[in-house]
Amino acid sequence: MSTLIPSLLATALAMATATSSTHAAELPSQSAPAGVHNVVLVHGAFADGAGWRGVYDDLTARGYRVSIVQNPLTSLADDVAATRRVLDRQDGPAILVGHSWGGTVITEAGVHDKVAGLVYVSALAPDAGETTAQQYAGFAPTPEFVIDVGSDGYGFIRPQTFKAGFAHDASDADAAFLRDSQVPINMSVFETPLTQAAWRSRPSWAVIATEDKAFDQAMLVHMAQRIDAQVTRVSASHALFMTQPKVVADTIDRAARAVVQTAR
């Protein structure tokens, strides 16, 4: 018995190790590029980081280390500071991703030395010296996207038109949850000039929702072209960060692989 038990344990351990190794080799997590395995996601106005869950699940399954910024939407400086805190915690280069107002945030914060590339998800992309509000000039407003501003200067999307303006391709239940869990934004942030434009020194990608009602389609195309982004278009609402997680994750994956190739 004394010799048999160690022998059986050794055999069982060897089998378990072999099975574990085979299983690990089959996991999609093995496909993440060696050079850039960090992704930092920045949400936009009227939302929080929970909407990134589908993108998070997709990318972590591919082997990426994904961090989600919970920016407070109180000022550009506060949102940039929140993003920099998360970037400081990365163990190597990262792809920095922003949705909507989050595009302004990553444009300012993206000069951080950990940022290897930028992904704009139906996102704003001002230049240094410009305000976010200036990006709307000359483009048609969309009647479905209505913001109610309180006496304290914070805005919410009007509940009655929330689904039509923000998330028409989400289920009624998901759209209602987004509507009722809105994070208001200090509307003064749109008048704050940027001091940095990270897209001038970092390669950029853009995912454009072709049914976006928060922005004029021509405005999204104009911004993507100006920053020389590689563009992916998808039939989706402004809430594409939640309703089209695979398309967004695929673009982030391409960005990570492209900056690795560029660095070689």
Score class of each variant (00 low, 15 high):
Gln261His: 12
Ala255Gln: 01
Ala133Leu: 07
Arg65Gly: 08
Gln182Glu: 15
Ala206Arg: 06
Asn71Pro: 04
Val121Gly: 02
Ile68Ser: 04
Val40Asp: 06
Met1Gln: 11
Arg226Met: 06
Thr262Met: 07
Val183Lys: 14
Trp52Val: 01
Val39Phe: 03
Ile208Phe: 03
Pro6Val: 13
Leu4Asp: 10
Pro126Gly: 04
Ser20Glu: 09
Val189Trp: 04
Val111Phe: 09
Val86Phe: 09
Ala255Cys: 05
Pro245Gly: 04
Val260Ser: 07
His37Ala: 09
Phe46Ser: 00
Gln160Ala: 11
Val39Ala: 04
Glu211Arg: 14
Ala164Tyr: 08
Thr83Leu: 05
Ala25Leu: 15
Thr74Leu: 05
Leu13Cys: 11
Val221Thr: 14
Gln182Phe: 04
Ser171Ala: 15
Asp78Ile: 03
Ala198Ser: 09
Tyr56Gly: 00
Gly98Cys: 03
Gly98Leu: 03
Thr11Ser: 14
Phe156Asn: 13
Arg179His: 15
Ala236Glu: 09
Met1Ser: 13
Phe177Lys: 14
Phe190Tyr: 13
Ile185Thr: 06
Ala116Tyr: 05
Gln134Tyr: 13
Val119Trp: 00
Val39Tyr: 04
Ala16Ile: 10
Ser100Arg: 12
Ser237Gln: 12
Phe215Arg: 02
Trp101Tyr: 14
Thr19Gln: 15
Ala133Gly: 13
Arg85Leu: 06
Gln244Lys: 07
Trp101Ala: 00
Leu8Ala: 13
Gly155Arg: 03
Glu211Lys: 14
Gly92Trp: 13
Arg226Phe: 12
Ser204Tyr: 10
Met1Cys: 08
Ile157Phe: 07
Ala175Pro: 04
Leu76Asp: 00
Val149Trp: 03
Ser7Lys: 11
Val80Cys: 09
Ala116Leu: 01
Leu118Ala: 02
Leu8Lys: 08
Val66Ala: 02
Asp48Thr: 08
Thr142Trp: 06
Ala12Tyr: 13
Ala167Leu: 07
Leu178Ser: 09
Glu108Tyr: 03
Pro33Val: 08
Ala94Gln: 03
Arg62Gln: 10
Ala128Arg: 15
Val247Gly: 02
Ala16Thr: 13
Thr60Lys: 03
Ala198Phe: 11
Asp58Gly: 00
Ser100Cys: 06
Leu41Val: 00
Ala45Ile: 05
Ala133Ile: 07
Met187Val: 05
Gly51Met: 06
Met187Pro: 02
Thr11Glu: 14
Gly150Asp: 13
Val42Ile: 11
Ser67Tyr: 11
Pro93Lys: 14
Asp88Thr: 10
Ile106Leu: 10
Ala116His: 09
Ala32Asp: 07
Gly150Ala: 06
Gln230Tyr: 05
Pro193Gln: 05
Met223Arg: 08
Leu9Ile: 15
Val66Glu: 01
Thr3Met: 14
Thr243His: 07
Ile5Cys: 08
Ser21His: 11
Gln244Tyr: 02
Ala197Thr: 12
Ala109Val: 02
Val115Phe: 13
Thr232Ala: 02
